[in-house]
Every structure is written in structure tokens, then in C-alpha cells.
């Protein structure tokens, strides 16, 4: 089992409670206050989880897009030196296609965003796209690890809530029993 870090990307780790009684007396909270604090913490974790999940979804959508770009660039590269044209149907508007002939080409233009398009040689374009794909995969991996960390914190907090709650039920029962015994 890996050692647990105290925080990850600004997300604090959930403290593990070894003994409920000690935890309550040390933090100076009664059961209800402790439960409220823990619930708040849980909500924060859940919020962070939602954000990260959205980020992961975005990245996961980006990967196939980059792969699509790579496929067409690779196809253009495979035509290099053959003198062959590529005949394509391309979309003019939604549902309207026209035919085009792409002569053997050494360069393609990549849309870089921010209203900038740059012409690259096909090889450079391929390299850049591959690099982008790699970066996307690396960030995706990092987010997945963050999510796993977060999941642990959620689980710890949930278990702690259950334990504090159970401890409280148990204490009440003991008190009731003690009261019943002393009155009888």
C-alpha cells in the first residue's frame, strides 16, 4: 500500500481518525458539530471530483480528435514522392459535400487556435500532432491519478462519518442502559 501524501495539487488529504473518542475530545467538537464539519469536507471533495471529471471528459474527447488529424496527415505523407493525387469529398456546409483533388503536398496548415494558422511541412506537422497526443495522454493520466487520490479522500471521509455516527449511537445506547440499570 503506497504511503499517503498529505495533499495533492492543493487538495488536502482527509485525516484518518484512529479513535473516535480521542478525535472528538481533541478537536473539542460534539458529535453533531463533528458530523457537520465532515459533511462539509465531503461536499468540497465531491465538488473537486465533479470539476476533475469534467476536465477528464474534455481531454478524453481531445484524444480522438488529434488521432483523426494524425490519420489524414499520415495519409498525405504516404502519398509523398508518388505523384498521386488524393481525391476527397469535403464538407462545404452541414450535409453538403464537394469533390476536391489534393495534389501531392509537402506542407499542411495547422490551426493553432487564437485565430492563428501556421504552415508546416508534413513531417513537422506529424511530429507536432504526435507531441500533442502525447501531452494530452500525459495530462489525462495525471488527472486520473488526481481522481483516484480524491476518491480515497471521499472514502475516508465517508467511513469517518459512519464511524462517528455509529460511535454516537453506541454511546447513547450505553447511557440508556446505564440509566435503566440505575433506576431498576
Amino acid at each position: 500500500m503506497a504511503s499517503s501524501p498529505s495533499e495533492r495539487r492543493g487538495i488536502p488529504a482527509a485525516p484518518f481518525v484512529h479513535d473516535v473518542q480521542t478525535y472528538l475530545s481533541q478537536s473539542g467538537l460534539d458529535t453533531n458539530a463533528a458530523l457537520t464539519t465532515l459533511q462539509e469536507r465531503l461536499q468540497q471533495y465531491k465538488l473537486a471530483e465533479i470539476k476533475l471529471t469534467a476536465q477528464r471528459r474534455d481531454l478524453q474527447a481531445k484524444v480522438p480528435d488529434i488521432k483523426k488529424c494524425l490519420a489524414i496527415v499520415e495519409s498525405l505523407i504516404s502519398k509523398l514522392g508518388t505523384g498521386e493525387e488524393t481525391r476527397v469529398d469535403f464538407e462545404l456546409a452541414e450535409g453538403i459535400h464537394a469533390q476536391a483533388l489534393i495534389p501531392e503536398t509537402k506542407t499542411v496548415c495547422l490551426w493553432l487556435g487564437a485565430n492563428v494558422m501556421l504552415e508546416y511541412s508534413c513531417d513537422e506537422a506529424e511530429a507536432l500532432l504526435k507531441k500533442n497526443l502525447e501531452n494530452a495522454n500525459t495530462s489525462l493520466q495525471a488527472i486520473i491519478e488526481d481522481l483516484q487520490f480524491l476518491r480515497d479522500q471521499v472514502t475516508i471521509t465517508e467511513v469517518t462519518i459512519a464511524r462517528v455516527f455509529n460511535w454516537d449511537v453506541h454511546q447513547r445506547r450505553k447511557k440508556r442502559q446505564a440509566a435503566a440499570e440505575s433506576s431498576s
Binding site: 483523426k68 488529424c69 490519420a71 489524414i72 495519409s75 488524393t86 481525391r87 476527397v88 469529398d89 469535403f90 464538407e91 459535400h97
Partner: peptide, 11 residues
């Protein structure tokens, strides 16, 4: 046949 590559259909 037309084969989709990127955003276009290649012949």
C-alpha cells in the same frame, strides 16, 4: 470507396 479520414471522405 469513400473512407473517412480526418474530416473528409477520401476516395
Amino acid at each position: 470507396v469513400r473512407y473517412q479520414l480526418g474530416e473528409v471522405f477520401c476516395h
